[in-house]
Every structure is written in structure tokens, then in C-alpha cells.
């Protein structure tokens, strides 16, 4: 039985391609967000130097379910080399 190997280069997802090619917003107060989105508090960035913004938690939390793709094509390998598997996923001798 030939197991599928991962020698083919992984293709970036559409979201990752968009992330790589997107420009940085330069004036946060000019972005027109969809009506369901709470815009950043303009007072927070009233003195913001170009392209350097602060963001409140409530604004940032809105991205949680919107950008969910892996941030690079080699992400799984990078996880194995650094953080490893979640502790709960590891078989634990004598438990459960």
C-alpha cells in the first residue's frame, strides 16, 4: 500500500493568498466596514502616525471566526518543530 506522501508543494489557501497580497490600511478611519462590524474607536487613533494603529479588544475579537486559515503553507511542519502536539492529544499511560 502506497501512502500519500507530502512531497507535492502545498498550495496556499485563497485566504492565505489574500493575506500575502493585501495592502496595509493607511487610514483606519476611512475604512467602510460592513454594518454588522463595530468599527475601531476613532478616538483611539486620533493621533496615530501613518499606518500605526491601536485596536481595542472588542474590535480585534471580531476577526476570530473570519480569518481561520493556517498562516503559512508549512504551518504543520513548523508546529511539529516548535510547539509539538497538544498535550491532550498525546496518549497518556494509565489515564482515561
Amino acid at each position: 500500500l502506497q501512502l500519500k506522501t507530502s512531497s507535492e508543494p502545498a498550495l496556499p489557501s485563497a485566504a492565505l493568498t489574500a493575506l500575502r497580497s493585501a495592502r496595509f490600511i493607511d487610514d483606519i478611519n476611512k475604512v467602510a466596514y460592513p454594518p454588522s462590524i463595530i468599527s475601531p474607536n476613532p478616538a483611539l487613533n486620533s493621533n496615530a502616525p501613518n499606518g500605526k494603529f491601536k485596536y481595542e479588544k472588542d474590535f480585534l475579537m471580531q476577526f476570530q471566526t473570519v480569518f481561520t486559515d493556517k498562516p503559512s503553507v508549512d504551518w504543520e511542519q513548523r508546529m511539529r518543530d516548535t510547539v509539538g502536539e497538544p498535550d491532550s492529544a498525546r496518549p497518556m499511560a494509565g489515564s482515561r
Partner: peptide, 12 residues
């Protein structure tokens, strides 16, 4: 990304 999660043109 709120307008288009797969075709957004600007990021924060």
C-alpha cells in the same frame, strides 16, 4: 476580510 474572507485587498 469582513467583506470577503478569501478576496480581501487590505489588512490591518
Amino acid at each position: 476580510v469582513f467583506h470577503s474572507p478569501e478576496n480581501f485587498t487590505v489588512k490591518h
